[in-house]
Write a protein that binds this DNA or RNA. Structure first.
Lengths: 343, 343
DNA sequence: TACTCGCGTCGAAGCGCTTCGATTGAGAAG
DNA sequence: CTTCTCAATCGAAGCGCTTCGACGCGAGTA
């Protein structure tokens, strides 16, 4: 591999000049720059990442902590939503690259990872996914003094920046949309209770938005939780639709259960949206790929990921003070909601 | 951050002694070792990754190239199967960690990534996912002289190691299983033709296995391709089941289409497995989560990922010569296949 | 007793880069 | 014509680690 000395020799300049051409930190004459650049191209020179990191204390690497929790049998745990993780990753990695950073992938499963990476200066900043309301990892992250961006909304951000989807706004928006169509009885088909118990807070915030708006829109709101298993889904749906005052609209905030929900609804002889309106809260592609395309409040995971990468880099550049950013909810009508039948 | 000098001072030894304690490359007396280890713990010393890389030319990092191809609008392309990618990642990252390596995440979308990483010595080895029959990237990888493991089966491995699932064996196994149950007319519901055209080779190999075994088992085999869209699925299924000699069993090698396939089948009034046997070829969790649990040949993506990580490390240690490893197919009966009705 | 051997430790060189003065020469200002 | 300024470049130090050769010393050998 060619070193900066090789390049310098080939271009007839000193190593420091090559360095300045590369970094742009000092003025270099056009002629010299051209010679250096030609030498770089000819030698296929790539700076040695380690040497650069050592000398400059910057790695141009972002560490990303993903919630890849494995079961005892080393299989992916059911409560981690692979699809959403990938959406985040698909947002983070390209944006980081565009800003000149590579991404080091760490998992939640490895407790030493954070210490190793910040202690060993393997990355300039951290992006932590799936941050819970009370997250054990935060004190360690804050203490490491490595700039960090949290995806999620902890109760105490420990002075770190956060990005998340405005689930509260999403809840309000869903109800407002349905209320506008005349619905007066709305049910949420929510995530399994393990998720609620994990206090990732997003489910709580969603619920809060749903309840708040329901109250002010005069909507009767009820809550059911379910896993993706068909029997559980059937139970949840019947909880929502049975009884003397059945819901006329469903808000589904559980993408794994979506297919089953639609299936159960159809099995009950209900047509969407004629007999029942359905609003999903999930990534766009999921909403589009259902048996019936669903009107949904898209969770813009990819966008959030990209935002996190941007915030990380901005923080590194000293252009950003720690703060919390919420990504606004918008509703896309795909035809699965309709005016409520006259009661 | 504490440096190795700090540790040396605290332990009353020289820096090189600390280094040897850490690496174990020279004998150190038990007493000295203990003193050094205490100092390391007290100072929370972590070696500076860049310095280490510079001095030793090793990074303890594996670079992983994932097929995160984005559309023009920067959204995830439909033909990349997010779930499978994650399974690979879930196999690779923990195993790499267990072997002392971190993982640097690169995407296919970034053409400079490979050069940057191998040229800049940012990683010790490469794992490339989703390698196609004729893969443009291979010459560059081979030329970079960075050890590499390919996930997939290129026509020409360029002297690199490969791991993949034995799709040929899977095809044979599926037919053998069905033939053993008395089925004489089997149809494959395969991946969309774009996948075939991309020549990832796995679809071809699967097909080859299906055909070979069909011939020798006296099974009439037909092929239909489909996307995940419901209308396309319906067309594919009717191609398989309509006409005078309808298939009595389906092999579905298209996980995205699975829910729709089952749905369409049910809509036609067919029960699984009584009226129609179904074998899926997909990851285990997908097969389990369908409306009807499916007998399947599980694609052990996670296992393959872990294997790739192991092979990468073994290669780095000089314990492994380049070669190709195929992971054997096994069939798990989940009750979606039954004896064929007497013809 | 003299000599060798190897264990345990140290010192120094060097990995490839960045960065901080210092230096040079050319043009502007006086 | 001298002095000052500033643009353009160089040299050297140093980032924190690994590793090689050297060295001291106690034990084994002759």
């Amino acid at each position: 591999m060619a070193t900066i000395e090789d390049v310098a020799r080939a271009a007839g300049v000193s190593a420091s000049t090559v360095s300045y051409v590369l970094s742009g930190k000092r003025t270099i004459s056009a002629a010299t720059r051209a010679r250096v650049e030609r030498a770089i191209a000819e030698l296929e020179y790539h700076p040695h990442a380690g040497a650069r990191a050592l000398a400059s204390s910057r790695t141009d690497v972002l560490a990303l902590v993903v919630p890849l929790r494995l079961d005892a049998d080393a299989s992916l745990r059911g409560d981690v939503d692979v699809n959403v993780i990938m959406q985040f990753v698909a947002g983070i990695v390209p944006r980081a690259r565009a800003l000149g950073y590579d991404v080091l992938l760490l998992t939640d499963d490895d407790p030493t990872a954070l210490r190793r990476v910040s202690g060993g200066a393997s990355a300039d900043a951290l992006i932590v996914m799936d941050v819970e309301s009370e997250d054990d990892r935060l004190p360690a992250v804050a203490r490491s003094r490595t700039p960090a961006i949290l995806i999620g909304m902890p109760d105490d951000p420990h002075g770190l920046s956060c990005v998340d989807f405005d689930f509260d706004g999403a809840g309000r928006l869903a109800v407002r949309h349905l209320a506008g169509l005349g619905h007066r009885r709305v049910a949420l088909v929510g995530p399994p209770d393990v998720v609620l118990e994990r206090h990732t807070s997003y489910a709580d915030r969603m619920l809060h938005g749903l309840r708040t708006q329901s109250r002010s829109s005069g909507v009767d709101f009820r809550l059911t939780l379910t896993t993706a298993r068909r029997d559980a889904v059937a139970a949840a749906v019947s909880e929502a639709l049975d009884g003397e005052a059945p819901a006329t609209a469903l808000v589904v905030h559980n993408e794994a259960a979506l297919p089953a929900v639609l299936d159960v609804v159809r099995a009950r002889g209900l047509r969407v949206p004629d007999d029942l309106s359905v609003v999903a809260v999930c990534p766009q592609n999921i909403a589009e790929q259902q048996a019936v395309p669903l009107t949904s409040i898209d969770i813009p995971a990819q966008h959030i990921g990209a935002t996190a990468a941007e915030m990380a880099v901005a923080t590194l550049r000293g252009e950003l003070e720690p703060h919390t950013r919420l990504v606004r909810a918008t509703l896309t009508d795909r035809g699965s909601t309709a005016a409520a039948a006259a009661a």
